[in-house]
Amino acid sequence: MSSPAEIRKTAEQKMAKSVDALRAELQKIRTGRAHPGLLDQVHVEYYGSMVPISQVANVSLLDARTISVQPWEKGMGAKVEKAIRESDLGLNPSAQGDLLRVPMPPLTEERRRELTKVARHAGEEAKVAVRNLRRDANEHAKRLLKDKAIGEDDERRLLDEMQRLTDRMVVEIDRLVAAKEGEIMAV
């Protein structure tokens, strides 16, 4: 039998994880500016297993529109270049000796609009996840009331707290999505 405090704590932790997952998802959406985290989802074959590029090369920024990738081992350059080229990021790296330069092509207006839709969709999914967690916590509270483990006042207080927590998380999600849209639309 769990207490209202445990229900509250569990719901808050899970909602925070949903917001963190959204933050990570938004990080993957490409803007006109370069950032090293952009290549995190690109995997390259390394001794028979697929690993993220950051585990076989040093990924850093040369300037606002160029990422540099410096493989740690000779011979990995071609594999890393191929992995970046074949990823769905639409990037075209160029090799200069061992160093790979990955220029960020400017985004078209149409592509920017598509990316804002992707960001909004991710935000909506995060809101649905948060609301589902609220529903689960509310059902749990109602079950405790039905089992006479808590009184009606405690149940009402817990439901109100869950609503406030949900509202706070939704505001944070909206803020993250709006910031990402601003980033995408900035020319």
Rank of each mutant, 00 (worst) to 15 (best):
A119E: 06
D160R: 05
N58T: 06
L62S: 11
L39M: 12
E12Q: 04
L107H: 14
Q55S: 03
K79A: 13
T31K: 10
R168H: 03
Q13I: 13
R120G: 08
T108R: 09
G48A: 03
G151Y: 12
L165M: 14
H35K: 06
P71L: 12
V69A: 00
I67L: 15
L158N: 01
A141D: 09
G90W: 02
A178E: 09
A5S: 11
R175H: 09
E172H: 09
M76Y: 09
H140Q: 08
E45D: 09
V170D: 05
M169W: 02
V19M: 12
D98W: 06
R113E: 11
R101T: 00
S94C: 02
A57H: 01
R131M: 13
H121T: 12
E6K: 14
Y46D: 08
R101G: 14
M1H: 13
K127H: 02
G37H: 07
P106V: 10
S2T: 10
I84P: 13
E124R: 12
R8D: 15
T108F: 04
D98F: 01
R156D: 05
S60A: 15
I184S: 04
N58R: 07
N92R: 10
R157W: 14
I184L: 09
S54M: 06
G37I: 07
A186N: 10
V170H: 00
I7C: 06
L22C: 14
H140N: 11
R65I: 08
P105K: 13
L176P: 00
A119N: 01
A186G: 01
L91P: 14
Q41F: 11
R134H: 01
R143Y: 02
A178H: 04
P36V: 02
A64R: 07
Q13Y: 05
S49P: 01
L22V: 05
N132L: 03
E6S: 14
V42F: 06
R168P: 00
L100Y: 00
L159A: 15
A64P: 03
A126M: 03
T116V: 15
L99I: 10
L158E: 02
G37A: 13
D20H: 11
K142E: 04
M50D: 04
G37V: 15
D160L: 07
K146C: 01
Q27Y: 05
M162I: 12
E183Y: 07
S49K: 13
I29K: 02
I53K: 03
G97T: 03
V56T: 09
V128A: 12
